[in-house]
């Protein structure tokens, strides 16, 4: 295409290197990036499955409570990572018109850092710092919930308008940050000497996780409803996690071995669904007009690639809870 722009504009940009130049027709969607991301998502999914298979192999165990704590930490990490990336992008969409909007990605990023580093086997000075970071997540997440509700309320149509629930500040999203904070605090507790039997810790954590699963599933349900469940796989996050919540809740109420086994499977399924969700969402971005080549629009407008890992986090947290509940059984054996 001949460049007919005025000279001063023509000098703005050097010609693109061959590999970056648009090929063929301008409006075409590009497949390559979409496929690559799809593959990456599938790989992530595979990792979760591999870890699941791995976990079934007998191996020398660390102290069981510490092992459970590690799972909970990984759960908190996945949640924090998901919120950090998602809020960074969504608040960018919102133009950071309110300074408080910087808080969410900043706090989530801190929480991510606090959970990403493996803590020393015995609690040291940094334990308090970690607790502070997680408490900040909890507070920010909770405040965020309130802020989002207030924000919707002041728009035309208010809280009863589906348009606001679909497209304004997402009601439930900051809950992910609060949950990450809760799991981070729980992990800190698990690193310290128990003040209650691990079984009870496990049941509390399982109950909390069941509630979180329901809430997150409701959020996914709302947004997938907005997408009219146009792809049958969109039903997965509104079926698998509630099922896991049900079984996990039941196991919390009555930690029978059978229920715990079932809950374990359900939690692995939820985590795997979360990982697969990334791949599906990457595919969804590609299906938007212009595909990944139009990423500046489609990453924001397409399905949020960063959202599904929340289910990975909750699945891992549920597994941590189940590990804790297993501890008594092992003691009896």
């Amino acid at each position: 295409m001949r460049d007919v722009r005025p000279d001063h504009l023509r000098q703005v940009r050097k010609p693109l290197p061959e590999w970056r130049r648009p090929r063929g027709h301008g409006g075409d969607t590009r497949h390559t990036t979409g496929r690559m991301l799809g593959v990456l998502g599938l790989a992530a999914c595979g990792l979760v499955v591999a870890q699941a298979l791995n976990a079934r192999k007998p191996r020398p165990r660390a102290e069981p409570r510490a092992a459970a704590a590690a799972k909970v930490r990984h759960g908190a990490m996945a949640l924090a990572g998901s919120v950090a990336a998602d809020s960074l992008m969504e608040h960018f969409r919102g133009g950071y018109c309110n300074d408080a909007m910087y808080l969410a990605p900043a706090v989530a990023g801190t929480a991510l850092a606090a959970t990403a580093v493996r803590p020393p086997a015995t609690p040291r000075d940094d334990a308090v710092a970690r607790d502070v970071a997680h408490a900040a997540s909890l507070v920010t997440g909770t405040a965020g919930l309130a802020f989002h509700v207030w924000n919707i309320g002041k728009r035309p149509g208010g809280l009863t308008s589906m348009n606001n629930l679909f497209y304004a500040a997402p009601v439930g999203a900051p809950g992910g940050l609060a949950a990450s904070g809760l799991y981070g605090l729980a992990e800190g507790r698990l690193r310290r000497a128990p003040i209650m039997p691990p079984r009870v810790e496990g049941r509390l954590l399982a109950g909390l996780t069941a509630l979180n699963l329901l809430a997150t599933s409701a959020e996914a349900g709302l947004l997938h409803f907005r997408g009219a469940f146009q792809n049958p796989f969109m039903f997965v996050p509104v079926t698998a996690p509630p099922a896991a919540a049900l079984v996990l809740g039941a196991a919390a109420a009555d930690p029978a071995a059978g229920l715990r086994r079932l809950a374990r499977a359900a939690c692995w399924t939820t985590a795997a669904a979360g990982a697969a969700g990334v791949a599906f969402h990457a595919w969804g971005v590609h299906r938007n007009h212009g595909g990944w080549r139009n990423w500046r629009q489609n990453l924001i407008q397409g399905p949020p690639v960063a959202a599904p890992p929340a289910f990975v986090g909750l699945g891992l947290a549920g597994l941590g809870a189940l590990d804790l509940m297993d501890i008594r059984d092992e003691g009896r054996r």
């Binding site: 907005r226 997408g227 146009q230 938007n288 007009h289 212009g290 407008q301």
Partner: peptide
């Protein structure tokens, strides 16, 4: 009363139609 106007442009993918940009 007012309402979001029903529109003949898709808000999610449909067949070979991408959602509205």
């Amino acid at each position: 009363d007012w309402a979001a106007c029903p529109n003949a442009t898709v808000s999610a993918p449909h067949g070979k139609s991408p959602p509205c940009v």
